[in-house]
Design a binder for these strands. Sequence first.
RNA 1: GCCCCCAUCGUCUAGAGGCCUAGGACAGCAGCCUUUCAAGCUGCCGACAGGGAUUCGAAUUCCCUUGGGGGCACCA
Length: 489
Amino acid sequence: MTDKVRTRFAPSPTGEPHIGNAHSALFGWLFARHNHGVFILRIEDTDVERKVEGSVEKILEGLRYLGMDWDEGPEVGGNYGPYFQSDRLDLYHKYARELVESGHAYHCYCTEERLEAMRAEQTSRKLPPGYDRRCRNLTPEQGETEERKGIKPVVRFKVPLYGQTRFHDEIWGNISFENNTIDDLILLKTDGFPTYHLANVVDDHFMEVTHVLRAEEWLSSTPRHILIYNALGWTPPLFAHLPMLIGPDRSKLGKRHGATSVLEYREQGYLPEAMVNFLALLGWSLDDKTEIMTREELIRYFTLERVSKTAAVFNHEKLKWMNGVYIRKLTPEDFAQRCLPFLKKAFPDIALPNDYVRRVLPLVQERAKILFEVPGLTRYFFTDKLDYDANLLIGKGMTAETTRQALLVAKERLEKLPAFDEQSLEALLRPLTEELGIKAGQLFGALRTAVSGETATPPLFQMMAVLGRERCLERIGDAIQRLSSLPGK
RNA sequence: GCCCCCAUCGUCUAGAGGCCUAGGACAGCAGCCUUUCAAGCUGCCGACAGGGAUUCGAAUUCCCUUGGGGGCACCA
């Protein structure tokens, strides 16, 4: 045995990597890193029915996106493999057999139909559903009779009829269950695969996992696991059940609450550092004020003592805010790098010259909350045709005609402006408002819309400077046209 | 129905008997800044689920009630 901390993340490949799983994984990862321990990734693919092709890759992608590296597991190997449960069936069979031989487990021949009927009956009589232990005391002869009928048995664990099972949870404290409320769970299914309970115990034991960090939903199956450890003569690891992530209605986080796949967040342009920071703060806190923390700080400060017991609502609003914080902290170059894929995807047929893109992007960096909205915020920098309602050109207290006149004069002056940069533009346009006898907002608003087709944009002079003289003049000319042909004007 | 838990602003949380007329953050609202939108700044709104008990003193300890969650599969 080693005294080094070893934790694991043990997802089952049944679909998109769930944000709730990512949360648990993160806590396990932070705990391992904080303690200079080992973070193991184990794939629990024991449910043939629910297995979804390609989900292992997605799980790995999700972890990579969030920057959670694993020391042992798929792709990296390790001394405790294999790390796919489907490659460890012999091991599970061995210990299932051992449990049967030692009298801790038995073969059960009950059909699924019978079990279902039994449960329905129990539920209708308002009794707790559970196996009635019909096969618990079958004689060898009775067993053989069933076998001859061609019925394949499952292996069930013989839960003690009396007494209680206690354990200590690092977060919840001491928990105790009456054994008579636990039914004889299945260890080995008829298809030869183990259930979670057996596989989990066997693997955590042989992989020398020291701390099992998993979501609270597992709390009530922990006594079963303890019982199995004991029956096998093994020392259980330490358990720490983590608060669950729930939706705004306080139920288990699901599709109807919005995006649940980690990869969806990547596609929407949530920065991994923001995701990690946000997730860490769901059920854990450092103190009464610190919220923005780097990955290194999270690792340094993360302890189980500061993990809470109450489920946390996944608040998209706050995530968005935090993502904005991280976006603003990026260097312009880094921001550009991260935006590029989103721009390319949104404007597949438009050239994105390097230096131009790098002049455009800083203009929206503090305005974007998620990367996905960057193309929308910068559209007019890349497209030629603007699509907007000409009435938007006309500001408060202006008419189509006064607006047109103002634009006409502005265009004229802009053509003659020696340098088309921010300072020159301001030096020209600011005094022009006085000359025209209109307010700054009236002229700037008209120009803003003319040049971008939008009413909310980055500062006008910066925007125009980046767009360039040619494009600006062209668009102002177009705006003048639109004003001239406005009906009723 | 049974078992195991949980309980501070709408949400994430600080609080481990006096530091609490309960702190921070998101959201909301108001204002400032300002050519628009953001960002930023200032302020406001806003919670200890209820009831007992212990104590000089309880958000903090204990009990009950209420509310909420999780589990009770040949799923994990």
